[in-house]
């Protein structure tokens, strides 16, 4: 963690949420992906030079608590709207990646009074086609090697050395995997209601997609963008499901005009 970073617990409705704050400037709420790979990533250092980046661990992720009543992204979005109230943040840029992107969309359909713009990066959250069409790759019935190949343009970049982690770190990894399944198993990676609510988003939206994302492909991303009034859609070459991690320079170049 860089020296400017501060991590603390924030209590929302008796739920303890782990929240890190990094850098100085206007607030940017970063909703990490389900693997929480963002904290050590170079793109974040660049953002922290311009923004105060606020990084909550979603309920059930990191060391944030997961009460039984929280069952899906819809429930989580209320906790994060409460967090914006609690920290009294205004003019917030919300940047959500993968599962975090879905949560960002769930927030924006409910209340944008504290939000100035949203960025969704290879987000899940909607069902586009029919019941027999697989819109989102089933990562839980696919061989782990196939999932890795779908997620990363360069599979080497996605490899994690668990033997170098201590038990606390491994507990976070195992908990993240479990919570992701708790929230996304069924309906698989989407909220059937969200699609019908996206029209309510009344702040500028940018959807950034890795060209080689095999989990949710660019056609899915475009369909998502088309459901949000005025949303822009951009792709990043040479990147899979995590363009902000795999191609940070082109990701930042795409992001920059939108957030300034």
């Amino acid at each position: 963690m860089p020296s400017t970073a501060q991590s603390s617990s924030v209590s929302i409705q008796n739920l303890l949420l782990e929240v890190e704050r990094r850098g100085a400037g206007k607030p940017l709420l970063l909703l990490a992906g389900e693997e929480q790979l963002e904290r050590e990533a170079p793109f974040l250092d660049a953002l922290a030079k311009q923004f105060e980046v606020i990084i909550p661990s979603l309920p059930g992720f990191g060391v944030s608590e997961r009460p039984d009543w929280i069952a899906n992204a819809d429930d989580i979005s209320y906790i994060l709207l409460d967090l914006l109230d609690k920290l009294d943040l205004t003019d917030v840029t919300v940047l959500g990646c993968s599962f975090g992107g879905w949560v960002a969309a769930e927030m924006a359909v409910k209340n944008t009074s504290r939000i100035s713009r949203i960025v969704l990066v290879d987000a899940y959250g909607i069902k586009v086609r029919g019941p027999f069409d697989r819109d989102i790759m089933d990562i839980w019935t696919s061989h782990p090697a196939e999932v890795a190949a779908a997620k990363w343009a360069d599979v080497e970049k996605g490899k994690r050395d668990f033997s170098q982690m201590n038990d606390d770190q491994l507990t976070v990894v195992a908990r993240n995997i479990e919570s992701f399944a708790r929230f996304c198993w069924d309906p698989y990676m989407h909220n059937p209601k969200l699609r019908e609510r996206l029209h309510r988003i009344d702040v500028p939206a940018l959807l950034i997609w890795g060209e080689k994302d095999g989990i949710v492909d660019t056609a899915y991303g475009e369909a998502y963008a088309n459901l949000i009034p005025g949303a822009k859609f951009a792709t990043i070459a040479g990147a899979g499901h995590y363009p902000h991690l795999e191609a940070p320079e082109s990701f930042l170049a795409t992001l920059h005009p939108f957030i300034n």
């Binding site: 839980w140 696919s142 061989h143 668990f162 507990t171 195992a174 908990r175 479990e178």
Partner: peptide, 22 residues
């Protein structure tokens, strides 16, 4: 069976999955 079917996410407690990661 294929590996993805043997230990679905969250089927065993977190402590067991920490051991599985090791």
């Amino acid at each position: 069976s294929e590996p993805q079917y043997r230990n679905p996410p969250g089927y065993v407690p977190v402590e067991f999955n920490v051991q599985a990661l090791k």
